[in-house]
Simulated scan of single mutants.
Amino acid sequence: MRIAETVTFGGGGLDRAEDLRRHPELLAQLPVRTLPLWRGKPLLAAGREGLAVMEGHAFAEHGHPVLVGKIDGAALFARDVSGLEVAGVGEGLGAFLDPTEQTHPDLPAGTAFAELRAVMTRLSPLDAEIAATAKGVLEWHRGHGFCANCGGPTQPGKAGWMRACPSCGRAHFPRTDPVVIMLVTYGDRVLLGRSPAWPEGFFSCLAGFMEPGETMEAAVRRETWEETGVRVGPVRYLASQPWPFPGSLMLGAHGEALDDRIEIDPEEIAEALWLDRTELMDVFAGSHPRISPARAGAIARFLLENWLADRLD
């Protein structure tokens, strides 16, 4: 897919400066900038259309700095400042699409911490990649304070890109969980499903975690059959999207269904249906009588819009 990297969080061109993680003496020679995140919410500029990066090791008393990359000759670090006493803690905090914003007297004027899902389509590709990287790695640190091998406390290293266990010597590195998300078609129709936890009317592409020893193609076929009873034949890769909620890599694929019979597993999915192109156009136009479109910025919407526009090649 020639436009694969135009998906949100893709194609930002971030210089991750992996060499500096291994050479702290070189890293120490660079000027420093900091992107603080509060409970996974990056600091945004006043217009909420870009990240607000602070000079130096801002909020140095909070968390451990993680090297995100090298930007304009400076080392950019992410820092978890969830311990800050912020203003703006109110109703909706922690919701799936958190509408709240948080501020602090030591932040630049007009800036605020905001939910990444709510602003991701307004960020530049580079800012979106930085935010996704920062959020994903800091979330990994939050959940890996203890060694999975012996249970001992771990310590960060390599500029925040590993955690070492002093007790048993095991080194742990940030992980990404692969998830297949599939555009399944049958002729001129596309298969959509609704999770039991989703609001009524919200439909999207089917998706599921890959299992050990499984290819992407096999996962597409297995997940589609498990959820809807639809058998899939040919499968091809289309595009990928880092999805830091909390730490997945969405592998977008096109699967060609062998039949259109649907028999859902109610434990897996609440409802599934086929839509033709005209119906999907109505969904994106907001005029469909019962179906809402996939969220802007999500790879599901990216795949559906490009299928509708015949741009999958």
Rank of each mutant, 00 (worst) to 15 (best):
A309S: 14
H57C: 10
G255K: 00
L43S: 02
A112H: 05
C168G: 14
Y237V: 07
G13R: 09
L26M: 09
E5R: 03
A239Y: 04
C147Q: 12
P199C: 05
I262L: 09
S240R: 03
R16Q: 14
G92H: 10
L67C: 10
A253M: 12
G143V: 02
L312K: 01
D282V: 01
G88S: 11
F284M: 09
V220K: 02
A272G: 12
D106V: 13
L37C: 09
A17I: 01
I299Y: 06
I3C: 07
E5L: 10
F245P: 06
T176D: 06
K135F: 08
A87K: 05
V66T: 05
V86Q: 00
P242Y: 04
P244R: 00
R117L: 09
R194A: 14
L304F: 03
V235A: 02
E217D: 15
A164D: 11
S82R: 06
E25C: 06
A74K: 01
E217L: 08
R2A: 10
P196C: 07
G73M: 10
E91V: 02
F302H: 04
D276A: 05
A218I: 07
E223H: 09
V66P: 01
H57E: 15
T278Y: 02
S204Y: 00
T103F: 10
S82Q: 12
R122A: 15
H57D: 15
E279F: 00
S292G: 08
R189A: 13
H172S: 09
L123I: 02
E18I: 04
D276H: 07
A171I: 11
V232C: 03
D19L: 07
P65C: 13
D276V: 12
M216Q: 12
G201K: 10
V220F: 00
H104N: 13
A4H: 11
L138N: 01
N306I: 03
V66N: 02
E139H: 11
P31L: 14
G110P: 05
G11S: 10
G297D: 08
G255F: 00
R142S: 04
F146C: 06
A207Q: 03
E49K: 14
A75W: 00
E256T: 05
E223T: 04
I71F: 03
V137N: 02
R21C: 09
G233K: 09
R48V: 10
W307E: 08
M120C: 14
A95G: 08
V7M: 04
G92C: 13
Q155N: 11
C165I: 05
A294N: 01
A118C: 13
T278R: 13
V230N: 00
R295A: 11
A159G: 13
D127M: 07
W307V: 02
D127A: 14
L251R: 01
D72C: 03
P196K: 03
P153G: 12
V66R: 05
D80W: 09
V230L: 12
E271K: 07
D19Y: 07
L51S: 06
E101M: 11
L251Q: 06
G187M: 08
V283M: 06
E85F: 04
I269N: 09
F203D: 04
P289L: 07
G193N: 03
E211L: 12
L308C: 15
L27I: 10
W307L: 06
A239S: 08
V66Q: 05
A270D: 06
T185P: 05
R231Q: 14
